[in-house]
């Protein structure tokens, strides 16, 4: 500390004392906040809950996949566990609400399909105004969009809009639940 700094220090004892008292008050208040309704209380509750449940999710609580669990995601798991060949292709026919927008380039269903089926590629389709399932390619220029097979040209099709009844040519129903159906190409 320089002479000037030391002098400043000695000319401000009241200020320093006030700051110290305020800091002490803040620290005590912080500790009390944490213990009574903040992080430390939550940590103790989480630790106790973990001990009681032996580290497993509580009954009735979401499992480890939480918001990503559900019938559509179960269907993806079924596809993921299929024995795949190197050239096997997968399509997901999604709801209109899954059509990308500027604000949301991908919906959770798309993310999850890509995540769970990686490294297998999944192509997405949404019904257009003419009632035909068209390929979705987000925000890339048309020139950069690779050619993909039509919906029913894929080895597996995950069909989410079960309100409609597709009659897939050359496919058989592999799996169905209340949110999704999986069709498999007969020649696969």
């Amino acid at each position: 500390m320089t002479r000037r700094g030391a002098d400043t220090l000695h000319t401000q004892p009241a200020g320093i004392t006030a700051i110290r008292l305020l800091a002490l008050f803040l620290l005590i208040a912080w500790a009390l906040t944490s213990v009574t309704r903040g992080g430390l209380r939550q940590a103790v509750a989480a630790a106790w809950s973990g001990v009681r449940s032996h580290g497993k999710p509580q009954p009735g609580q979401p499992d480890a996949r939480g918001q990503w669990a559900g019938p559509y995601y179960d269907a993806l798991d079924v596809v993921a566990h299929q024995p795949f060949g190197a050239n096997t292709t997968i399509a997901a026919a999604l709801f209109q609400s899954d059509r990308p927008t500027f604000a949301s380039a991908m919906t959770p269903r798309m993310y999850e399909a890509i995540y769970r089926l990686y490294p297998r590629r999944v192509d997405f389709y949404v019904t257009n105004a003419a009632g035909v399932e068209e390929n979705l390619w987000f925000d890339s220029p048309k020139s950069q969009v690779p050619k993909v097979p039509p919906l029913w040209g894929h080895a597996y099709v995950v069909w989410t809009d079960i309100g409609r009844s597709p009659e897939p040519p050359g496919h058989r129903l592999l799996f169905a639940n209340r949110e999704a159906r999986i069709y498999q190409a007969a020649n696969h």
């Binding site: 989480a46 630790a47 809950s49 973990g50 979401p62 480890a64 918001q67 995540y115 990686y118």
Partner: peptide, 28 residues
């Protein structure tokens, strides 16, 4: 206690959005 809580939280909860799709996806 806090370490145990952190481990339980990690083990019994899902990854959140960024964890899953930015980092977890690349890891997978």
């Amino acid at each position: 206690v806090c370490c145990a809580a952190a481990l339980f939280r990690a083990y019994t909860s899902p990854m959140f959005w960024d964890g899953r799709y930015i980092w977890g996806f690349k890891a997978k």
